[in-house]
Each structure stands twice: as structure tokens, then as C-alpha cells.
Design a binder for these strands. Structure first.
Lengths: 217, 217
DNA sequence: ATAATCGTACCCCTTTACGGGTATTTTTCT
DNA sequence: AGAAAAATACCCGTAAAGGGGTACGATTAT
């Protein structure tokens, strides 16, 4: 029996070690190498010729997508399964467009990962439900996505706070937002402070970023 | 011999399973429970009375720091080791101020985690300056932000500008962004002005919004 | 080779944001 | 009816953002 040779590329040693331990428990899977960044992943993939590369998207030096493109361009037989956090919607689309074979969230369990490895090894693709949902919601214009897995992921902003944040994201200052809402500038300032506190961010720019990536605005 | 009872709180099943496998390999450590969010972590911690809680910072429902505060307020004998990604610098200070017993980046290996668990169990702290320093220099060394394979619609921003905008979207001020990039604060200010001008927006909050909806960051 | 762009750095000045508060009214949910 | 949450409005202070300039070395493109 030929074991499926797997290369792990992730800059988190803890993740690498945990995955290796877990995967080596499967009799038909063998982890043959570990890379800590994209460049190393490319180098090792071409050297070791794994069947499958488990690739984290965000890595130093060269990100997972770039590394995947590089690997595929040299040896298209090497399959690549992308691993990532839940909130990287933008990357999923990028990844899909460069011919990734599988896409999994780290929120998924190891059992699912093993399934994915086997399916991809046999020539298939593996996109789980959450990934599909993400892609769809992204394409549809990021209205209200990301509420797929564990229910409530976003801190509770009140309707008024969301209204204020939306205005801010459109370039309004507290003063102009206040005029638009027919309330005092000081009230808008108050809302703004509450938003920053609730979201645990440093300023409104970060709040806008957070809100945008969570479909709040 | 009493085993050290450990509760794992992390919303990524993969991480939980990997850690459990790895830690149960250590004869004096036993994982007695797993929580998938902050609220569950509090509940299980008070029920199961673990010696140590391994707590991820970013979790749905209630984040790791809030959960830690809650647990400590009910039972101060329960030790808490915070686990987090490299890019959550902003939480470190918060975590430190609420009496966390240990702080580890997921980039650290499981060996170091075991060391931390043992040290904390024996009543010590694990906040090593060495790691923190190494981490900080690591963080400062990797400001790349991945804007390489962009075949899509014209982002009129230069790579450096995108880098600045990305930092801004993560809550950096001009000063802290400048420190991170090893350039003058005035230069960052200049970049930010150019960004606003180029994108035709009123302020950085709107710029972040624009960038987020156009996949620039 | 020469023009254009980029990244760097600084000057002036005004406006806005931010981080603590406190407090009252209105709405919403038991 | 009473509690809780939300929305309203204000105080203090410091920090940062933003708008307008200029300038110069290093790349990059033509």
C-alpha cells in the first residue's frame, strides 16, 4: 500500500506539530515534510514531491496562494489543499482562481481533513459547505455572510451604532453624520466611542475594517 | 502522581484535536475538556475545575480575555495560559493586565507549551521576555501584505501605500505604523495623504472601507 | 538619457478623533 | 411595573488626523 505523502506548510509550529501527530495516526497518510513559509513550501514541494501540500494561506515571505501558483507551475501533479481561518473570504476566491484542489477551514476537524486528503488524492476536489457558502456570499456582495458555523461571531452593535459606523465608512465626520441623523455631534461621538469599545479596536479605521470583513456594513 | 488537568478553549477544532493529541502524549498532562467559545470555557472551567486553561484569545461569543476575567473572578486557583496568533499584539497588554498566568504564541512549539504548562502549574508564570522579544522582532520583520498576483481592476495604490493602509486598517496610528515600518512618522503621514487623494475619499475610515470592498486589503 | 514614479522626510496650520467621565430620556423586555 | 438596554447630550483633557506645501535620492519606464 502506498501512503499518501503530505507536506505541511504553516508558520505556526503548534499547528504543524499537531497536524503531523494527528495525520500520522492515519495509516495511509505520511507527513514527509514541514515548511514554515511560502518560499520553503515551494522548495520542499519540488524536492520532496509530496502527493499533497497542506498550505496555510497567510505565511511570511510568500503567502500560500503565491506558493501554490509557483508549485503548480512547476509540477501540476502536486495537489494543494488550502487551510485557513474563517474570515479570509477574499482569499478563497483568489485561491479558487489559481487551481487549488481543496479548501478547508481550520475550524474543521481532523477527521474532515483526512477525508479531504483522501478525496483529493484520488483525484477529486474538496470544498466543504462552509467554503461554498463563503464564496457565494462573497460573490453576492458580502451582504450578511460569515454566520455559518457557530452562530454569533460578532459583538452586538446596536442598530444606531451600525448606522453611525456605516456613515463613518462613507467618509462622514462626527459633525456631518450628526447633521444627517438630526442629532447632536456629541451623541455621534458617544456612539463612536461605544463602537470602538465594543469591537475592541483601536480606532474607527479598524472598526470599519472589522465591520467590512464581518458584513456589518 | 497527579496529572495536570488541562482545559482547551479554542474555536478551531483542528487546533483543539491537535493539542489534545500532543498533550496527552505527556504522561503528567491530561486534557479533561474542550470548549469552543468563551462562554463555554467559563462554564466548563467552573464545572471541571482544571488546573490550567489553555485559552485562545479570539473566540466567538466571548473572547479569551473576558472569559479569563470571568473564570478568575470565580476561582482564582485556575491558571490560565493565553494562546494567540502572532498578529494580535494589541491583546497582549490587555491580557497582561487581567492576571493571565502564561502567554504563548501559537508559533511556539508543543514542547514549549508543555514547559509553560508545567511551570504555571508549579505556581510560576510563563511570560518570557525572550519569546516576547523574539516575537516582536519577528512581527516587525514581516510587513509584506501579499499584493502580488493582482490581475483584477486597477488599484491605483502603490505597494507601500497598500502596506500603510493595511496597517491603518488594523488600528495602527501613523506613529505606530511608522515604528513597524522603520520609517518616519511624517512619511507615513505623507503616504496616508496620498492614499486619501488617490482614492478620492474624505478620510482613512472611508479609504479602509473602499479598500475592503475592492479587495485591496 | 531623461522623464516619471516612488519612497523618503519635513514645514505650516486647523480640525477631528479618542479616552475617561456623568446624566437624562426613551424604548424594549420581562 | 420595574429592570435593562439604547439613545440622547454634555464635561474634561490629549493625541492624531487631515490639507496645503516643498524637496531629494532611488528606481523604473520610455
Amino acid at each position: 500500500m502506498t501512503k499518501i505523502k503530505v507536506l505541511i506548510a504553516d508558520n505556526h509550529a503548534m499547528v504543524r506539530e499537531g497536524l503531523k501527530l494527528a495525520l500520522d495516526n492515519h495509516k495511509n497518510i505520511k507527513v514527509i515534510g514541514e515548511a514554515t513559509n511560502g518560499k520553503e513550501a515551494v522548495k520542499l514541494a519540488l524536492e520532496l514531491k509530496p502527493h499533497i501540500v497542506l498550505m496555510d494561506i497567510s505565511m511570511p515571505e510568500m503567502n500560500g496562494i503565491e506558493a501554490a501558483v509557483e508549485i503548480k507551475s512547476h509540477d501540476n501533479n502536486i495537489k494543494i489543499i488550502m487551510l485557513t481561518m474563517l474570515d479570509s473570504e477574499k482569499f478563497i476566491v483568489d485561491a479558487m482562481s489559481v487551481g487549488i484542489d481543496g479548501y478547508l477551514f481550520k475550524e474543521s476537524g481532523i477527521k474532515e481533513l483526512a477525508t479531504a486528503i483522501n478525496r483529493v488524492y484520488e483525484g477529486g476536489e474538496y470544498l466543504n459547505k462552509e467554503v461554498t457558502d463563503k464564496i457565494l456570499s462573497y460573490i453576492r456582495g458580502r451582504s450578511f455572510s460569515s454566520q455559518t458555523l457557530n452562530g454569533n461571531n460578532t459583538p452586538p452593535l446596536t442598530p444606531r451604532e451600525i448606522e453611525v459606523l456605516t456613515l463613518v465608512s462613507k467618509g462622514h465626520t462626527s459633525k456631518t453624520a450628526a447633521e444627517k441623523l438630526f442629532i447632536s455631534e456629541l451623541t455621534v461621538v458617544k456612539h463612536r466611542k461605544n463602537i470602538i469599545k465594543k469591537l475592541g479596536v483601536k480606532n474607527l479605521a479598524e472598526a470599519v475594517s472589522y465591520a467590512a470583513s464581518h458584513g456589518l456594513i
